[in-house]
């Protein structure tokens, strides 16, 4: 099993992958990707039990993950490639014509590791719950994980799903919300305040945990703790505080880098802060 040090080295490389992917095509979403790097690294290199190759869509007797905020595809693709789902070199095709690494993740091009298309927000929680129900029908005790943006919680379907999950005691799911407080038009507070998310989820009948998503030890502990609380009749949500743009000083603390790629100079400045660890693609 990977040590915290190993996981941090992977995370640094994933951040380089994110920046280099979006820079190469001058498009994509670096901010939220950088913020969720520890989480996805911990999930795929520590927490989940799965087979990357061969990848099986049905994921029976495996843990499965759904990315609901599909725009952070650069971090998802990097982690999928580096966990053995497809060749790392394929990251160079991100968002290019004929690629399997579409702007937003899709099953349409057959990219291993992706089980649902996402991009239009608010749909992934329902899908993850469906997969969790399917696991129960199959007597499969593995878990379903999902990740959502905080801005995404403004979509009504999320709350339809939240109500359903608690009412039906879907307790084999761990949903995580990336609480970075930012969305395209500004802070979530300014655009449409989410209010008290803990109180909201608790009122909907969920078990709520919180963690700092940019501290690897906390993410590991948070995921392990959440997994230990599954099977108790309640769905679980982790409110994960992150910093958008984490790891690159000039990208942090602003929504400006939500969907903007660095230019050549900005890329070199950013990569200088993230020395290569396990090898660039």
């Amino acid at each position: 099993m990977a040590s915290i040090h190993d996981l941090q080295r992977i995370a640094t490389q994933v951040r380089r992958d994110i920046l280099r992917q979006v820079h190469a095509v001058n498009s994509g979403h670096p901010g939220g990707s950088l913020g969720c790097t520890e989480f996805l690294t911990a999930l795929y290199f520590h927490q989940m039990r799965f087979s990357a190759a061969p990848f099986e869509m049905d994921g029976v007797n495996q843990d499965v993950f759904f990315l609901s905020n599909g725009h952070i595809s650069p971090v998802f693709y990097s982690v999928l490639a580096r966990s053995g789902h497809f060749p790392i070199a394929e990251l160079a095709t991100f968002r290019k014509i004929n690629t399997r690494l579409q702007g937003h993740p899709t099953t349409h091009e057959g990219l291993p590791g992706v089980r649902i298309a996402s991009g239009s927000l608010g749909q992934g929680l329902s899908v993850a719950l469906g997969a969790a129900l399917s696991k129960k029908l199959n007597n499969d005790t593995h878990l379903v994980y999902s990740l959502h943006g905080d801005g995404e919680l403004q979509e009504g379907q999320i709350w339809e799903a939240a109500m359903y999950a608690a009412a039906n005691k879907v307790d084999n799911i761990i949903s995580t919300v990336d609480v970075n407080g930012q969305q395209i038009d500004g802070s979530t507070e300014k655009v449409l305040s989410l209010g008290n998310l803990r109180a909201k989820f608790e009122a909907f009948g969920w078990m709520v945990f919180e963690m700092n998503g940019n501290a690897m030890e906390e993410v590991i502990a948070g995921l392990e703790n959440a997994a230990a609380h599954t099977g108790k009749g309640k769905p679980i949500v982790i409110l994960m505080k992150t910093e958008m743009g984490m790891g690159v000083d000039f990208m942090m603390g602003t929504h400006k880098w939500h969907g903007v790629a660095p230019n050549d100079e900005q890329l070199s400045k950013a990569l200088a802060q993230l020395p290569e660890t396990i090898g660039d693609y």
């Binding site: 029976v60 749909q123 329902s126 469906g130 997969a131 199959n138 379907q157 339809e160 799903a161 359903y164």
Partner: peptide, 23 residues
């Protein structure tokens, strides 16, 4: 049988997810 209540968007998403696992 899964009663989803008056929440059709969630119903479609649940159905999509349930196919994963062979339903």
């Amino acid at each position: 049988f899964f009663q989803t209540g008056i929440a059709e968007a969630n119903m479609i998403g649940l159905a999509a997810g349930m196919t994963i696992g062979g339903k």
